[in-house]
């Protein structure tokens, strides 16, 4: 009988354990200090991880509204919905050349909701703060790396997600400024991928086939960089020894760097950007920060010796700064 009782007790413990183990993801939400909304097209994990780490650190609640493909109207409407929801702050990216997003940001400002832009800036939008890289500088940095890799002589193809993205445009401008100074470096082709996998593959292949003299590529955004490596890794293009400099960091990009498909990647401090964005909003709401602030964060040139594991751990685990 004693054994049976022990068995039953063990069984009950096990049942309760199982009950709680599976019950945890379905917990009830609790009201937190501030309600922020992060509206963005698909960006790297680093930015999201930084925001999550900041939420954890400051007890804030940042809702993430992401889009698979960049759409300016959708982005602006998401900002407006955040305004209707009367959130305490909005974080978004300034990837827009039209007035739609600017109007949405102005609407937020009208409702006294602070808006902070990360990754790319819209200085005339009335946003309260920009945190991110100086994209002109980042483009110039990429140009210098490619100049060195090609020894100042190359037929270059530029692949960008969209030239209507302010940050892409700035990066390209910075890049061109540097290239301009090298007489034997020439940008032959500029391709817009719209961050679409199929489009990247199809157009990049066609471009490389049509222009066999192309021997250098500058890729201006992370999503396209993720996808382009697959095409360049093909045997037909490997033999052409195409020197490539891209933007961002991910498993794929690091893999291509290691395989020699890419020569270098310009890496932003995405995690820090996300973290600092939440931190700044909190400070602003508490009266500790001023509107109109611009915080530029340095970019890093990642080569084969890049410490990917440390970067990954910091980006994905939500480790604080």
């Amino acid at each position: 009988m004693k054994k049976i009782v022990i068995l039953i007790v063990l069984m009950l413990f096990l049942m309760v354990g199982v009950q709680f183990y599976w019950e945890s993801p379905m917990e009830q939400g609790k009201p937190l200090a501030y309600r922020f909304t992060f509206v963005c097209p698909s960006v790297g994990k680093g930015l999201t991880a930084g925001i999550a780490a900041a939420d954890k650190a400051f007890g804030t609640d940042t809702k993430r509204t992401e889009f698979e493909n960049f759409n300016e109207e959708e982005l602006a409407y998401a900002v407006l919905k955040a305004v209707y929801a009367n959130v305490d702050g909005i974080i978004t990216v300034g990837r827009s050349t039209s007035d739609t997003l600017t109007e949405a940001i102005e609407q937020a400002e009208k409702e006294e909701i602070p808006v902070i832009l990360v990754d790319s800036d819209l200085p005339d939008s009335g946003r309260d703060c920009y945190i991110g890289a100086d994209n002109q500088d980042a483009g110039a940095q990429a140009g210098r790396v490619l100049l060195e890799a090609t020894e100042g002589q190359a037929h270059i193809a530029v692949i960008t997600s969209s030239l209507s993205d302010a940050n892409q445009k700035e990066r390209l401008d910075g890049f061109l400024k540097v290239i301009k100074e090298a007489p034997h470096m020439k940008v032959d082709q500029v391709l817009e991928s719209q961050s679409d996998g199929m489009r990247v593959r199809k157009n990049a292949q066609r471009m490389l086939d049509e222009y066999p003299e192309l021997d250098a590529i500058f890729c201006t955004d992370e999503i396209t960089s993720d996808l382009l490596g697959e095409v360049l890794a093909e045997e037909a293009y490997q033999s052409r020894d195409i020197r490539t400099v891209c933007f961002g960091m991910s498993e794929q990009i690091y893999g291509y760097l290691q395989d020699g498909v890419y020569d270098a990647s310009i890496v932003q401090q995405s995690f820090e950007q996300g973290y600092r964005a939440v931190e700044w909003l909190r400070q602003y709401l508490n009266g500790q920060a001023e509107s109109g602030e611009i915080i530029h964060m340095e970019t890093v040139v990642a080569g084969q010796d890049f410490d990917f594991e440390s970067w990954k751990q910091r980006s994905e685990s939500g480790e604080t700064l």
Partner: peptide, 15 residues
């Protein structure tokens, strides 16, 4: 129904 649902309901309340 989870933290995300709660947050969305809160936004809905404000809307």
């Amino acid at each position: 129904a989870g933290v995300q649902f709660y947050r969305d309901v809160r936004d809905m309340q404000e809307m």
